[in-house]
Amino acid sequence: MLPFAEQNAGGEANEEARIQAEVDVLRFRLRPFELVVELAAISSVLDFEEAQGMILLDPAPYLGLLPSRAGHIGLLEARGGPPIGLCLGEVWGAESWSGERLLELPSWLKGTLPVILRKACGYDNLKRIVWMLDLDRLRQAG
């Protein structure tokens, strides 16, 4: 879970700490959407073919996309049981994100977001919006 996401600020000190806090994320592109997932949740990245027979969690259908049939698979850190992979589409690499890069979504739009996304977003140097995957919600939904 991204520790600084969706946090309700409780005073200036908390806000300052939130802005300065950093978390490592894995950035990936699932067709039109750019997303990140917490890097600590992923133990390695495989090709689609290498994940044959693995249980796959696929965010694509929850984003209004057709199910993934190719691309990279993130092997999730084991919680016991069979190995589980996360469909990542095209992996762009690891980044370090500070709270400064996180933006609150307008309240009138929060209701539109799929349940597997956090109700906030990040943005990069080119002002491209990057969505944050809520892995726990995806596990529950899957």
Partner: peptide, 8 residues
């Protein structure tokens, strides 16, 4: 540049 909102 506008970014599409998933599910909107």
């Amino acid at each position: 540049s506008l970014t599409a909102l998933p599910g909107a």
